[in-house]
Design a binder for these strands. Structure first.
Lengths: 162, 162
DNA sequence: CTGCGCGTTCAATCTATATTGAACGTATCA
DNA sequence: TGATACGTTCAATATAGATTGAACGCGCAG
């Protein structure tokens, strides 16, 4: 492949790496996807370790993540023993799956905590000013949490499905 | 303040710290906001460093970030020299500002790269298979980038404004 | 003007997490 | 049934970036 073409690809790989790094997914995830996406031929783990200078273990894990999000798919080439990967062009689907996965996981983290505290607070219902304040704030927190979840489930997810 | 109340607050502070850490904002940002939010009285930087055991420098920077997002506001108490902070209850506005800030910044990162490469590719328009492939992929990338920006600007932002 | 009490800055340090790579399990081929 | 060529795992390591804290500037009180 022409070296000028190679240069362009490298620039994209680098950029994708920075981007995925900046959103907290690690550099190699973006690099790997972009490399596969800009490769005319399906790529193997060895191709990735060689071209991107990353470890085999890392490549293996990243590729599995990308596969779960539908960003790459495994293709079998008969006669070959290795796994070959090619990129999906359906970015919409990929982003949707990744968002649902990543953000959905994050929203679960907060579950449980608010309910627990509200139970304690309900028991201790004396007229104390500070307890009242705490109750009001935590009720407000819960209201917002519920609304956020609703918007996420009913509106954002729906929007992403288009 | 009752120590039981104090315990509840500490649990929330800890959780908020974990949450903000997990979304890549650092632990202290979440801790600080939650501490102020659950405090009946406006808090000073010294209060924060004492209660949360964080450095003054860090508290100063985090509070400034929270102020920019409208999550806390500075209040003057006459006769006092220190800055006092109290929390906003309008989470919707806060989240909106933070998202627009954080994600907006991220979307700018990718600008420029695609255009540059397309110019190079347009020049080298020979019939070569690999060049054609690269062109198609990058065009697709650009199409998606444009669509993503459109959805962000026209739909998500609009949704958040409610 | 001087000293003090603040908030801010930023190079040094620490830490959460991404990445590595040797050891391992597994499937394929002779 | 080995032998080999893979992909996977996970404890060890490296690194990005969050946090610290000493030095600083500024404004107010005396």
């Amino acid at each position: 492949m022409s070296s000028e073409l190679e240069q362009i690809r490298q620039r994209y790989v680098e950029s994708a790496g920075h981007l995925s790094q900046s959103i907290g997914l690690g550099r190699s995830l973006g690099q790997i996807f972009m490399h596969i996406y800009l490769s005319p031929e399906p790529q193997t783990l060895d191709d990735l370790t060689r071209e991107l200078e990353i470890s085999k273990g890392g490549a293996s894990m990243a590729v599995r993540q990308l596969e779960q999000w539908g960003a790459v798919r495994r293709v079998w080439i008969k006669g070959r023993r290795k796994d070959y990967y090619e990129a999906s062009e359906d970015f919409g689907r990929v982003i949707r799956k990744a968002l649902l996965d990543v953000i959905g996981r994050r929203m679960e983290v907060t579950d449980g905590l608010i309910e627990d505290a509200e139970k304690v607070l309900a028991g201790k219902n004396n007229g104390d000013k500070d307890w009242k304040f705490m109750k009001r704030r935590i009720r407000k927190l819960r209201t917002f949490r519920d609304r956020a979840r609703w918007i996420w489930d009913r509106s954002i997810v729906k929007l992403l499905l288009k």
